[in-house]
Amino acid sequence: MKPSEAVVTARGISKTFGKGGVTALQDIELDVGRGEFISLIGPSGCGKSTLLRVIGDLVDPTSGEIRVNGKSARQARLDRDYGIVFQSAVLYDWRTVAKNIALPLELMGFNRAERAARVQELLSLVELDGFEKHYPWQLSGGMQQRVSIARALSFTPALLLMDEPFGALDEMTRERMNDELLRIWTEIRSTVIFVTHSITEAVYLSTRVVVMSPRPGRITSVLPIDLEQPRTRETREDPRFFELVTEVREALHAGGADDVVEEPEVVE
């Protein structure tokens, strides 16, 4: 991969919380190319959310260097190079759907007409036409998360960071949201870094799956996913899909996922 094509480059990233505390990340090396869909998967405490936050300059690494779009992570954040989606939708209760989606546009100085036009485009992209005047509490969990995705995409960032965005949804909704996300990804052609602890979700969505293990949080293997694009309902029944799911599962177990006692993800 040519350096110019790398959206994210991580070199020797480590993160320790507190004095002599938990090593959340140790010697992370990762290159993410333009247009890739990368999943970070691993058990709780493996540092996958922390790594995502280091890329987004929301958490400072203790050591190592991280480049985003060829700049420091801090500069990339200041240039608003990425959009972020969290596990919960994190909508502002006092804003309507339209105003939640337009929040980053407001901060970036787009005028009212530009914002309104962009909100309409995004509402149809996430299939929520007609919901612009609703308040967050009037929407289901899946709909709220679609609003949050629309908000992240509103200023067309080249990079989308997603921290277990569908973790709180039921299995049926999650599968539908997976299909929608892939459709959106195909349409806008941005790079996605996606944190999950669902093996099938990681395999179904990704071009590469990055397997992480805890104590200390590190990358144990990177598996290319060679399933055909675009992925459809048939993909989920493809024998190759099951082979890859098995590969990822074995990689997780080899990395010591079995020894893990459930504990909350280490986030600052």
Binding site: R77, I84, S88, V90, Y92, L107, M108
Partner: peptide, 23 residues
């Protein structure tokens, strides 16, 4: 505020004045 609400503002590189006014 939930930590993510503030992380969201940080991801937009919002200055403190904006964090107060909008969040």
């Amino acid at each position: 505020l939930r930590p993510e609400s503030l992380e969201l503002m940080r991801s937009y590189a919002a200055p403190q004045r904006v964090v107060f006014a909008r969040a």
